[in-house]
Design a protein around this nucleic acid. Structure first.
Lengths: 346, 346
DNA sequence: GTGGCTCCTTGAACCGGTTCACGGCAAGCT
DNA sequence: AGCTTGCCGTGAACCGGTTCAAGGAGCCAC
């Protein structure tokens, strides 16, 4: 097929103006629902525009109003880690679900170092490619807040930012789910438990670990056994191996994501241990396959799609000028006991 | 923190021109490496530009050269299906890995119907938001090719397009891996095998099913047992249930993706069957957790990240005007036998 | 009849780049 | 000396929208 191009003739605002017999100013007013256009004229213009199939050129509009009509999402993550974590994809889908209706687009980037992340932020901002950023996976002393501040970009933060801000912030309380997990394990008789946690430079990962420890202590359980890992399957397997091969093997292990938990189960199996008879496993995330595993994984469900929806809505409002004083609380994650956790072995 | 805005004063090309004591035309020439600028002058301009931290405004450039400096990727998929399939995320990462260096961005959309998909395509094209599209998951009589043709957009197709085109096409040969899987199963003594396949409106899904059937027949195996499913875990589980609960239970099932295979294993387990002792399972994709399952899943590995890299490279060349006559062959998928396939039960 | 007011409409500037056509100047040629 | 040629540089138009300030028409009141 010969690409039937030959200069795609796009219809401009001046074409609509000519067709309707008015100035292009009036067309602009009419189609942006500005006051000061006679109703009859407005209708005629709208009709003509529809007839000609006119849609405004985004670059042109972007240039004149200094808005990109797009928001950015930068993942600082290995492609592998990104691909195997459903949270982000669902979050994206949630963002899209509201952006599409507002004629906004989502510009994504995947970078593999904080240096590249910095460049990506600067580039998106300086190029005028986006009007705001979605900030996820908050880290200790997160540099991204300074970047958006300097760039004058709006943002929405999924998690507590380091300073007060007038931008929207989404938070939720993990302590309830954690309390449930710990009680569940204690009720099943577990006394020797260990944690496999995410990178401790990552603020939520740290908080989650601390909340678990707090609850463990409240039940008189030694909370000192935790291993820092990296949310990958390989990392989870290695951490689990260390726990299982050490002395005083735990009777239960809680993981900070499902992927590590699955890998942990695999490590247990390869040592001839049975789950949950010999060791109980609890994950975090509730990825799709968790319920299809054998045994099905006890875990904590989150709501990334809804997070995305709310984040996008608020970010658009922030871009529109709204100021936020209070963080928005999202529904809490919820513990879902399944087959991988059972009575403690003797 | 008070957002330190107060109108972010961006540096324009005219500022650079003033600083270097030349016209803005010359600045433009100098920074775009055009001929007709004295070397000494060019250096002075570049120096000043760097000093002032100038980067071109994307909307402005986009407006004047009619290029968006972005490419689009539209997924017509439920968020759930998208999130649980690593292929797409890895593909995105692969695309990004080359786009970032070229100052191109990736604009993604997630839509849930072919109608919404159509709108997304039209919108991206008419708005002048992208210069080209990445077309994945080819369907029967795929409408997207007509859309990009009408819109005059460049594209790269991952799979055979319905008509000849001068745009880049990426293909690979699955028959080799399929031959290996079938020989593997035959060598293990399997004679009753079934397939759980993807939506047959999806061209590659159909082809994969046919290739499997062809090989089965070559070994004198009844190839008529296949169930169409939807690539989701729930679908895979239901299809597997139908196969296991029918008469003449197969001794092996091959799935068109890992997610369905995992769900299939789960269905087998819940009926008290052992894998692979009672039934062998083979997937397709090699998602991260496949090797961490118990038993580890025999499957076929692909290279979505590399696909993305190559696709982006070729698409950029196509946008630059290059015409393609031959499709580009990617490395073939490869069968990876693991623990979920073993000798046929009696 | 004139001033003032409201309502609708328009010309022109502007957003920040790219690019075309042209001009000045020095060197090279006859 | 006069003409061509090439190099380097510039003014102005253009991309396709938005928006400001101003203008014309119609109406009312004094």
């Amino acid at each position: 097929m010969k690409e039937a191009s030959g200069r795609r003739r796009t219809v401009r605002i001046s074409d609509v103006a000519a067709a309707a017999g008015v100035s292009k100013t009036l067309v602009s007013y009419a189609l942006n629902n500005r006051p000061g256009v006679r109703e009859e004229t407005r209708e005629r213009i709208v009709e003509k525009a529809r007839e000609l199939g006119w849609t405004p050129s985004l670059p042109a509009r972007a240039l004149s109003v200094s808005r990109a009509y797009a928001i950015g999402l930068v993942f600082e993550k290995s492609p592998e880690a990104l691909a195997s974590d459903q949270y982000y994809t669902s979050l994206m889908a949630g963002l899209q679900s509201v952006l599409a209706n507002e004629r906004y687009s989502l510009v994504t980037e995947v970078v593999e170092s904080t240096e590249a992340e910095r460049e990506a932020y600067l580039r998106l901002a300086q190029d005028g490619r986006v009007d705001g950023m979605v900030i996820v996976d908050l880290r200790q002393d997160d540099p991204r807040f300074a970047l958006v501040r300097e760039a004058g970009l709006a943002f929405v933060s999924l998690g507590w930012p380091p300073e007060r801000t007038t931008m929207p912030v989404l938070v939720y309380d993990e302590s309830e789910a954690i309390t449930d997990v710990v009680r569940h394990l204690v009720d099943l008789g577990h006394r020797r438990v260990a944690q496999v946690v995410g990178p401790q430079t990552n603020a939520p990962a740290r908080l989650r670990r601390e909340l678990y420890q707090k609850r463990f202590r409240e039940h008189g359980i030694d909370a000192s056994r935790w291993i820092e890992s990296d949310y990958t399957a390989a990392g989870g397997r290695a951490a689990t191996a260390a726990l299982l091969d050490g002395d005083r093997r735990p009777t239960a292990i809680v993981y900070s994501n499902d992927l590590m938990a699955v890998a942990g189960m695999s490590a247990a199996f390869s040592r001839g241990l049975r789950v949950p008879t010999d060791i109980s496993i609890v994950g975090w995330d509730d990825i799709t396959i968790s319920q299809y595993l054998h045994p099905a994984l006890s875990t904590v469900t989150q709501h990334p799609f809804d997070d995305g929806k709310v984040a996008a809505t608020l970010l658009l409002e922030a871009i529109g000028g709204r100021e936020f004083v209070e963080p928005v609380w999202m529904p809490n994650p919820r513990f879902v006991p399944r087959e991988s956790s059972g009575p403690a072995s003797a």
